[in-house]
Simulated scan of single mutants.
Amino acid sequence: MHKKLLYALNMLDNHQKNIATFIHLSTFSRFIFPLGNFIAPLVLWITNKDKSTFIDNHGKEAINFQISILLYTLVLGMITVPFFLFNIFSGIHFIDFNLFDSIHINIGKPSPLLYLGGALGGLAVVGFIVELALIVRASLKAKEGEAYQYPFTIHFIK
Results as ranks from 00 to 15, higher is better:
3 K>R: 15
5 L>W: 03
6 L>I: 01
9 L>I: 06
10 N>F: 12
12 L>W: 00
15 H>F: 12
16 Q>Y: 00
17 K>C: 05
17 K>R: 11
20 A>Y: 01
21 T>C: 05
21 T>H: 00
21 T>R: 13
22 F>I: 08
22 F>L: 11
23 I>G: 10
24 H>G: 05
24 H>K: 09
26 S>Q: 08
28 F>C: 06
29 S>Y: 04
32 I>D: 03
33 F>C: 05
33 F>P: 06
34 P>C: 12
34 P>L: 14
37 N>I: 05
39 I>Y: 04
39 I>G: 04
43 V>C: 10
45 W>P: 01
45 W>V: 05
50 D>P: 09
50 D>T: 11
50 D>H: 15
52 S>G: 11
56 D>V: 07
59 G>M: 06
59 G>A: 01
59 G>Q: 00
62 A>N: 07
66 Q>H: 03
67 I>S: 05
68 S>N: 03
68 S>R: 01
70 L>E: 07
73 T>L: 12
74 L>K: 05
74 L>G: 14
75 V>L: 10
76 L>M: 09
77 G>H: 10
80 T>F: 07
80 T>W: 03
81 V>R: 02
84 F>N: 05
84 F>W: 14
84 F>R: 03
84 F>K: 05
90 S>H: 10
92 I>G: 11
96 D>S: 13
96 D>L: 13
96 D>T: 14
97 F>S: 07
97 F>N: 13
99 L>H: 00
100 F>P: 05
101 D>K: 13
103 I>Y: 13
103 I>M: 07
103 I>E: 06
104 H>M: 12
105 I>S: 12
106 N>C: 12
107 I>K: 01
109 K>D: 11
111 S>A: 14
112 P>G: 10
113 L>I: 10
113 L>R: 07
114 L>Q: 03
116 L>E: 02
116 L>D: 01
117 G>M: 03
118 G>T: 12
120 L>Q: 02
122 G>K: 07
127 G>M: 15
127 G>H: 09
128 F>V: 14
129 I>T: 09
130 V>K: 05
136 V>Q: 00
136 V>K: 04
139 S>D: 02
139 S>E: 04
140 L>T: 06
148 Y>D: 02
149 Q>Y: 12
149 Q>R: 05
152 F>K: 03
152 F>T: 04
153 T>E: 05
154 I>Y: 15
156 F>T: 06
157 I>Q: 03
